[in-house]
Computed example of a mutant assay.
Amino acid sequence: MLSFKEFCTTKTLVALGLGQFLSLLITSTGLSSSELARRGINAPTSQSFLNYVFLAIVYGSIMLYRKEALKAKWYYYAILSLVDVEANFLVVKAYQYTSITSVMLLDCWSIPCVMVLTWFFLSTKYRFKKIAGVVVCVAGLVMVVFSDVHAGDRSGGSNPRKGDALVIAGATLYAISNVSEEFLVKNADRVELMSLLGFFGAIISAIQIDNNRSILECNEVKSIHWSVGAALPFFGFAVAMFLFYSLVPILLKVWM
């Protein structure tokens, strides 16, 4: 058992503070997506596009200033970006069908997925307490899905089962993305990761928007009806996502 003094190190306090702020940012993205869905704006790919543009501009400028060679192959970032774009699409799309509560809870499915992937690919070891915590988490997620399937009313969304399936699929892709980011942060460079993730993510998002077609959605651009009330959550989502993407690699660095 750690003493209180051993626990309250600068590293631990910084990690806890970052973790809480990241949780706040995720909550902000959920509220923004839920508000856009309530207003009838159905544009999951468009919402994420601006975030990738911000990443490409900010971190791409730093990379150009450094003039350094890439530390990882460019196609690693292209594959990661594809996974990340579709993960964002699936989770944001889910707000059209289910409640914000279900989305936020089911998004935790990424936790057991991350544990399995890090154990298999990064040789991370987990103790019994952590495994037991994940089992409890998964049990709770099953109860959420069961509740949505057998809900008597549909006040939480037009199709809760479809929404839950989208969140679980998106959370699985998030896990792949997060583990890949951890690997690249450890073996490449944080700025390089953010820059190329933004660059390829913006291209992939733009292609999907330009074709009016994503994995499960067509004609999303035509569904956007702009107003002041809609613009605020739209840009708020992009800013919150930009900050989240920027801070996650820092948190990973802290715990190395």
Rank of each mutant, 00 (worst) to 15 (best):
R38L: 08
T45K: 00
A43N: 06
Y95I: 08
Y95R: 02
I62V: 14
L90R: 03
T98A: 01
P112N: 10
W74R: 06
F89C: 03
Y76Q: 15
L50P: 02
Y77M: 07
L105E: 05
F49H: 09
S46L: 15
L13Q: 14
Q47V: 15
V91M: 06
L64F: 06
I57F: 06
K67V: 03
S34R: 12
L106R: 12
S28F: 02
R66P: 03
A69I: 05
F54I: 15
Y75D: 10
P112D: 08
L22T: 14
L18S: 09
I100V: 12
Y97W: 11
K11A: 13
S48N: 10
A69F: 02
F49V: 14
T10R: 13
L25V: 12
I62G: 03
R66Q: 12
L105S: 06
E86Y: 11
L80A: 12
A72P: 06
G17I: 14
A43F: 13
T29I: 14
S48R: 01
Y52Q: 08
W109P: 14
V103A: 01
F89W: 07
G40E: 02
C113P: 10
L55K: 09
L55A: 12
P44Q: 02
K93T: 14
C113N: 11
W109L: 15
V58Y: 02
T9K: 08
K73Y: 03
V85L: 05
G60K: 07
I26H: 05
E68V: 13
S102K: 03
L24E: 02
Y65G: 03
V92W: 01
I79Q: 02
S99W: 01
A78K: 01
M104P: 04
I62W: 00
Y77F: 13
F49Q: 09
K67Q: 09
F21N: 00
G60P: 08
T101S: 12
L50K: 03
G40L: 06
A72W: 02
S102P: 09
C113T: 14
S34V: 07
Q47F: 13
Y65F: 08
F21A: 04
L18E: 11
E68L: 08
R38A: 13
S28V: 10
T45P: 03
S110I: 14
A15W: 05
L64A: 10
S34W: 06
L90K: 05
A37H: 05
W74H: 01
I57Y: 00
A56Q: 00
I41S: 01
A69W: 04
E68P: 04
S81G: 13
W109T: 15
D107S: 15
R38S: 11
T27V: 13
E68M: 07
T10G: 07
L105H: 04
A15P: 11
P44S: 04
T45A: 08
G19N: 11
L90P: 11
F54M: 13
